[in-house]
C-alpha cells in the first residue's frame, strides 16, 4: 500500500531498505532493529490503522545470506488493504528479533510457531517455547537442511518417550 510505504519513509527513513510492488501486493523491507516501533506506528496511525496482524512467517534462504527473514502481514479494516513487512535478520546462527506481542496480542502463537519450526528467537516474548512439536524435539524442521522425513532424532522419538514412561 503506497500510503503506508510513504508514511514509513517519512517516519523511519533510515529503517526502510526497499519497497517491492508485485501483483498488487506491497512489501516493505525494513531493518529488524526497530520493528516494534514500526509496528506500533502502523497500528496507531489514524490514516492507515493496521490494527490487525494476519500472520508472522519465518523464512529460511539457505544457502544465501542473510539467511533468515521474518514476514508480517497486516490488514487495515479502515482502508481494506494489506501491507507486508519483511525483515532480514542479521545472524545466521542465532537469529533473533524483537517480539511484537505488545503491539498485537495475536502475535503470541505466530511467533511461537516461527520459533518452533524455524528457530528464530523473539526477544520479549512472554512464553517462547515449542508449540507444534513436542518439548524435547531437537531441530527446527522448516529449515532447509532438515530432511522432510525427519532425522535420526525424529525417527526414535516415539520409542524413547514410550520407554521413558515404562
Amino acid at each position: 500500500m503506497h500510503l503506508a510505504a510513504d508514511l514509513l519513509k517519512k517516519q523511519f527513513p533510515s529503517e526502510i531498505v526497499e519497497v517491492v510492488e508485485f501483483r498488487g501486493d506491497t512489501t516493505v523491507v525494513v531493518k529488524p532493529e526497530r520493528i516494534r516501533d514500526i509496528c506500533r506506528f502502523l497500528r496507531d496511525d489514524p490514516t492507515v490503522a493496521f490494527k490487525y496482524l494476519s500472520m508472522i512467517a519465518g523464512l529460511d534462504y539457505f544457502p544465501e545470506s542473510p539467511r533468515f527473514a521474518v514476514v508480517y502481514n497486516l490488514y487495515s479494516h479502515q482502508n481494506h488493504d494489506r501491507l507486508t513487512l519483511k525483515a532480514y535478520l542479521a545472524s545466521a546462527t542465532a537469529p533473533a528479533i524483537d517480539s511484537v506481542t505488545s503491539v498485537w496480542a495475536t502475535a503470541d502463537w505466530h511467533e511461537r510457531e516461527a520459533y518452533d519450526l524455524m528457530g528464530i528467537r523473539f526477544k520479549g516474548h512472554p512464553n517462547l517455547k515449542r508449540i507444534l512439536l513436542p518439548e524435547d524435539w531437537k531441530g527446527h524442521p522448516l529449515r532447509k537442511e532438515y530432511p522432510q522425513r525427519g532425522d535420526q532424532d525424529a525417527a526414535t522419538w516415539v520409542n524413547r518417550r514410550i520407554d521413558a514412561k515404562k
Binding site: 524442521p141 530432511p147 522432510q148 522425513r149 525427519g150 525424529a154 516415539v158
Partner: peptide, 13 residues
C-alpha cells in the same frame, strides 16, 4: 504424509 512428525502406520506400535 511421508514427513517428520507422522508415524508411518499404526501397526508399528
Amino acid at each position: 504424509f511421508d514427513s517428520y512428525p507422522v508415524v508411518q502406520g499404526i501397526d508399528l506400535y
